[in-house]
């Protein structure tokens, strides 16, 4: 057991502060990468912080069609994201809440966020938002098996059901598990891009509503609800990012090293997403399911490899 320099409570405090303050930086980093790749200067890295601060002060406009469900989407999305964030370890630091089976809760909390976001989109009665909601529901139905097969593979390898143990992989890593682990991470990378509505599944910067998935679902949100939506999306980038980064990180002897490694990896992830977005076009909608099935196959194959 590695002795940490910081007491556990301080670790948890840092965890909480990371969850609350860091997420808006990730989209900023991605945008900056994309701008630089395209030869532009681009918005500042902290742009989302400014946006959130402004939105929190702005008036909100509501459609006459909507009910309280319209607000349940942003609220539920952020609440579920925050709850899920307490279950996942950031690199090789312990998660604040960890118990046997928290993987399932983790996955279903994101399901809850998705459910409420979809409903809040449908609440407006707009055909565009309905279309986005339908796509979200359809594609996530394929992402879910990939996520769970990855969990099954890791649970098989580590004989554990807690994210904290399952993801802290290098501690138990043997050469036998390297191949399957890479497959799991590849499958989860697909899930990551899908769940966060990034290219090649969805284009967050597109200007045509017909081609959007996530962005079109929040067309009618404004003011503070929109701030919550934006924050929730960036939170998802962080939390799911921790899911795919942690198994790949080496374990360092000191806690501060682990934290630094995690932050560096997160920046690297943002950079990677930015690079993917700069070098690829969005898939046609009909091709997206194939992309997701590839993710399911990768994780499924990983599981099979774990068995033999």
């Amino acid at each position: 057991m590695i002795r940490s320099l910081l007491p556990t409570m301080l670790q948890f405090l840092l965890h909480g502060l990371t969850v609350l303050l860091l997420p808006p930086l990730i989209p900023g980093l991605i945008a900056k990468t994309k701008a630089l790749m395209a030869g532009r200067k681009g918005p500042p890295v902290f742009q989302l912080y400014y946006d959130l601060a402004k939105l929190a002060r702005k008036q909100a406009v509501f459609s006459r069609t909507t009910t309280w469900v319209f607000l349940a989407g942003p609220v539920g999305g952020v609440a579920a994201g925050l709850a899920a964030s307490s279950l996942v370890p950031f690199g090789h630091t312990p998660a604040p809440v960890s118990f046997e089976g928290d993987v399932i809760l983790f996955a279903y909390l994101f399901g809850l966020a998705r459910f409420l976001t979809i409903l809040s989109a449908l609440d407006t009665g707009s055909s565009f938002e309905g279309m986005g909601a339908a796509r979200e529901a359809t594609f996530s139905a394929l992402a879910e098996p990939a996520l769970f097969l990855g969990f099954a593979a890791l649970a098989k390898a580590t004989s554990s059901l807690s994210l904290g143990t399952m993801l802290a992989f290098p501690g138990t890593l043997t050469a036998r598990f390297t191949g399957p682990l890479i497959l799991v991470l590849a499958g989860w990378a697909i899930v990551y891009l899908t769940e966060n509505s990034r290219i090649p599944v969805d284009d967050p910067n597109t200007h045509l509503e017909l081609t959007m998935i996530h962005e079109v679902m929040v067309l009618d949100h404004s003011g503070r609800p929109l701030a919550l939506v934006l924050y929730g999306a960036s939170l998802k980038l962080l939390v799911l990012g921790a899911l795919i980064l942690t198994p790949a990180l080496p374990r360092a002897p000191h806690a501060w090293q682990n934290w630094l490694a995690f932050y560096a990896a997160l920046a690297g992830l943002a950079l990677g997403v930015g690079l993917v977005e700069s070098s690829m076009a969005r898939f046609r909608m009909t091709k997206v399911p194939q992309f997701l099935v590839a993710g399911v196959l990768a994780t499924g194959f990983a599981f099979l490899l774990m068995l033999v």
Binding site: A60, F62, R64, V78, A79, T124, L219, D220, G223
Partner: peptide, 21 residues
Amino acid sequence: LALLLWRWLRPMPRGDDRPTW
């Protein structure tokens, strides 16, 4: 958490109600 966020949303400045965009 949901309650806290809701409390934060409720007193927000509210513009006119419009048809759906």
